[in-house]
């Protein structure tokens, strides 16, 4: 469980970036943190593995204050994948890149080999195992970064903007993969601007604005709240706008995904017939 208690944070050079964040993310929960640029999303998730320590308040990971553990030790439980893969790739081969963290954590060579092989297969990267990560495309580099964290099988997974630079098919795979992680009872926290992606995944959504939480609830409720979304510079998902503009047909107004929308429209047609 990841828990924050009136978390305040300021960079040494400026004002408060986070102003009293209190939230609780339970084990095997799937959460999307959304909000405008500069709302403090990335700053918040950097608290989850102790990279940032709160200036006031507390962050607890599995009931232990992050001030009491080193980043390396918390990281074994909280895997944080950064937004830009170019900030971390440095090895000669993808295989080495993925094994880097396992070596840091002191795994046995056989375990390293087995785990690396598995994760490369899972993320569709096996064919690049011996390539240099620098020769891969942006989307592929992003998957290497993801693999390099998931490889040690952390209990909580935090992804910063995982969909950037991924084509639609890859996004679909990513969604299935995340749902698979959730079904393996892992906590998954994503930070994203990609409202369509969130609409398809339907996680719990936490809206952040100017360093404070403005809303926290199921995607269905939050992504259809025009006023709230506007406050956070977000636009509701296309399906949701469509359903809203077909209001007269008496369709459900809290629909954000294609399948429910289809069912609702079909039902309306049947009623007309």
């Amino acid at each position: 469980m990841i828990k924050t208690e009136t978390l305040h944070f300021a960079y040494p050079t400026g004002d408060d970036v986070l102003k009293g964040i209190t939230l609780e993310i339970g084990d095997s929960e799937f959460v999307a943190i959304m909000g405008e640029n500069g709302a403090g999303k990335t700053t918040l998730i950097k608290h989850f593995n102790g990279l940032h320590k709160p200036t006031k308040g507390h962050v607890l990971v599995d009931d232990v204050d992050t001030r009491k553990r080193s980043v390396a030790s918390i990281s074994r439980d909280v895997g944080l994948v950064f937004q830009n893969p170019d900030h971390q790739l440095f090895c000669e081969t993808v295989r080495e890149e993925v094994a880097f963290s396992l070596r840091n954590f002191g795994y046995e060579p056989e375990t390293i080999e087995r785990r690396t092989k598995n994760i490369l297969e899972t993320l569709d990267l096996s064919q690049y195992a011996d390539s240099s990560p620098f020769t891969l495309s942006g989307g592929e580099r992003k998957r290497v970064a993801l693999a390099s964290v998931l490889v040690w099988n952390p209990k909580h997974v935090v992804l910063d903007e995982p969909t950037i630079g991924q084509d639609y098919q890859q996004k679909d795979r990513l969604r299935n993969f995340i749902l698979q992680l959730v079904s393996q009872r892992k906590t998954v926290i994503i930070v994203t601007h990609d409202i369509e992606f969130v609409a398809e995944c339907k996680p719990r959504v936490i809206l952040l604005s100017k360093g404070s939480i403005v809303a926290d609830g199921p995607a269905r409720k939050i992504l259809t709240d025009e006023r709230l979304l506007d406050e956070c510079s977000l636009v509701r998902p296309q399906i949701s706008s469509l359903m809203s503009s077909l209001n007269d047909l008496g369709l459900g107004q809290d629909i954000i995904d294609v399948y429910t929308a289809r069912a609702s429209i079909l039902e309306a047609f049947r009623r007309v017939k």
Binding site: K46, N49, L51, S70, V71, A72, S75, R76, G79, L80, F82, N84, H87, Q88, F100, S101, N104, F105, S148, V149, W152
Partner: peptide, 16 residues
């Protein structure tokens, strides 16, 4: 700023 982000990213992968 870049340097700080890189340090953070590698620390998150267990680099001490």
């Amino acid at each position: 700023v870049d340097a700080q982000t890189v340090v953070d990213a590698q620390r998150s992968r267990g680099l001490e």
